[in-house]
Amino acid sequence: MKAKASDHSAHILPLRIYLGVGFALFILTGITVMISFVDLGGWNVTVALAVASIKAALVVLFFMHLLYDNKIYLTIFLTAIGFLAILIIFTMFDTMERGRLYPEKAKPIKPGAAIYEREDSLSSRSVDTTKTDH
């Protein structure tokens, strides 16, 4: 076996990077909390998520060393994010667009919180363990 060129003595980051990143994360947390008290209309979510993404990027790139490591690890991480995006976006093609062509005719089965009624029916059923068709 050929010995590979060694990058084993892995990158040791200087202390100030860790402390600096930690400090930046603290500041960003403060900022996002403060912004949440301001009404930006629909933009609150966007800003909150943008700040969270910056914080996440800091953690991933520095604490998890993705900035310095082999880029295959970054690829794996981005793959995860990509498939998660597919899951959410494609499902929303459904949930956000229902009833466009043909308005949904069905009414909610029971309007309002019918959960208390349902609880009764459940408990009465669980007493009766024999199989009945329902």
């Binding site: 498939f83 597919i86 494609f90 093609f93 459904d94 949930t95 956000m96 667009e97 229902r98 009833g99 466009r100 062509l101 043909y102 949904e104």
Partner: peptide, 22 residues
């Protein structure tokens, strides 16, 4: 394979848009 799952749900009441895409 990750982009097509909705074809199991054409008659389940998903949106027409989703059905078309899937």
């Amino acid at each position: 394979s990750f982009l097509v799952w909705g074809h199991h749900m054409f008659v389940s009441g998903q949106s027409e848009l989703a059905a078309m895409i899937f």
